[in-house]
């Protein structure tokens, strides 16, 4: 199996998890998701420094965009 085929399969995995596991969460039920510790990036300055150090000392690069989650407020 080619590398990209494998990658595709791994990409499928989280989506299928989402499809099967998702429950509708109403707008007023997002208090927990809005907690600061539930953010993808709970402490941006800490993440920035960590990425900075790991980027300098390791060969890998590339991470999350920290959007998503939050309170669903308008």
């Amino acid at each position: 199996m080619s590398g990209s085929r494998k990658l595709l399969l791994v990409l499928l995995l989280p989506c299928s998890v989402m499809l099967s596991g998702c429950q509708p969460v109403q707008a007023w039920e997002r208090g927990v998701l809005a907690k600061p510790e539930m953010a993808i990036d709970a402490n941006p300055l800490e993440t920035q420094l960590n990425n900075h150090i790991y980027f300098s000392k390791e060969a890998s690069n590339g991470g999350h965009s920290a959007t998503g989650g939050g309170c669903g407020c308008n």
């Binding site: 590398g3 990209s4 990658l7 990409l11 989506c15 989402m18 509708p24």
Partner: peptide, 23 residues
């Protein structure tokens, strides 16, 4: 993994997850 196959995978990701959308 071939680099030039990445764009198609990128396009695939949201399409898959858009299936979730229910108004």
């Amino acid at each position: 993994m071939k680099i030039n196959q990445i764009p198609s995978i990128l396009a695939f990701l949201p399409v898959l997850c858009l299936v979730l959308i229910v108004q």
